[in-house]
Design a protein around this nucleic acid. Sequence first.
DNA 1: CAGTGGTCTAGACCACGCT
DNA 2: GCGTGGTCTAGACCACTGG
Lengths: 250, 250
Amino acid sequence: MAIERTRTAELAEKLRDRIVTDMKSDDKLPGEAVLADEYGVSRETIRRAFNRLESEGLVQTVGRARFVRLFPMYEWRPDTFEHRDHRRDEPGSNHDAFTGDVAAIGREASQYVEVTIVPAPDLVAQRLELDQGTTVVVRKRRRDIDGTPWQLADSYYPLSVAEGTPIMQPGDVTVPGGLMKASGHEQARFHDEITVRLATPEEVGRLDLPATTPVAQHVRTGYDAAGMAVRVIVTIAPGDRHKIIYDVTA
Amino acid sequence: MAIERTRTAELAEKLRDRIVTDMKSDDKLPGEAVLADEYGVSRETIRRAFNRLESEGLVQTVGRARFVRLFPMYEWRPDTFEHRDHRRDEPGSNHDAFTGDVAAIGREASQYVEVTIVPAPDLVAQRLELDQGTTVVVRKRRRDIDGTPWQLADSYYPLSVAEGTPIMQPGDVTVPGGLMKASGHEQARFHDEITVRLATPEEVGRLDLPATTPVAQHVRTGYDAAGMAVRVIVTIAPGDRHKIIYDVTA
DNA sequence: CAGTGGTCTAGACCACGCT
DNA sequence: GCGTGGTCTAGACCACTGG
């Protein structure tokens, strides 16, 4: 006999099995009323089971219907990302690191960048060693794969670093050696902090996620050769479509 | 005016505010009936709000009551952890890396290790380059802080590496140079993969977590100087009590 | 305007532990 | 026994959308 479980947990498992064995990404799931009838439970129980599957990222509700979502994992390598990113400036390459990674698995990348000046959020001010509320330049970036929002990567720069440099240029800028080199503050080392939590309502909106999805928040602080904190990148990576990879020498 | 939200979301926010401003860790929360009356909503709405707060890790239900849980973040540095771990073998130290980290913030660490031989799970077999189902040695470890389960760290070794070495010894073993050196397969490099997802029922049980908590799954594959995969460590770190840190040279 | 999912409620039953 | 949280249900109302 199977161990004792709640109807909701059992139903979630049945639906999960059914989805992974019989269905593929973007398939439309039956309506709540149909399933309630089919499995002999109330509509609320159906909804609770789907809530679980949505949190897992397996199902997403769009408008008036639920769809299967099985994303490929984007393997993100923060330890080599910036290094590879500079290749975009080499002759013959029009790939930044993200675009190159995505092209390598036969998919299409796109990015949307918005440049603004804002008071530094707490998290950023601390890491840039600025007073809370000091204005900073932020390049808010959304990276998509095959038209689906994949991750957010917001870069914050002190005004003293960004002013009068290509960092202030709107859009996805390409400059030889990269934005940081152009600012005269090439980065020598990074401090990366990863935390795991549920997506905030803002992130749910920007990435079109279900309401209760786990995300990785990756905060990279970059320092120049003089030891000055010159950039903070806050990356939000939904768990259902990211694997973060570091290679470490013992 | 505040933007339009559901009663559940509004209530969750009110309770969150109330908790972080007026309460402290381990305080007992009022019962559902009391809150339903106080806020003028049904008990189901109270429960939905608490479900959200439990997922965030702010509240935990124990037996017949809910308590505030505000954990300090354990700052885990996988890139230097193993190196520092070896200090346990230096004269005058009885600290491994975890115990030392925890002592440094004035708290008390404890660890529970169980050694068994099992068929390699898929994830492990692939990384150790073994056929699926090959038996491997696993050291299942739970690390606690101040008596609270904090993380799981299960280490898997190929039989050929572990046999006849202190790796097979039960309990929290201390050997000069570390377990890997004693096996003749000191690790030269690591490949770390981090994914984010909801805790599995097994993890919920082993770590005493609420049912819908996000965790980081950190899989470290260690290679010896000859390039052989000699160990896989699967660490499960609940998001509400961990910050993972890597320092990277550009 | 009928059907969908989103939300909320009242009420029921249960297991459990405390008084 | 009574109150707690855990679970489930039936039913209601809403907003939105496609026929």
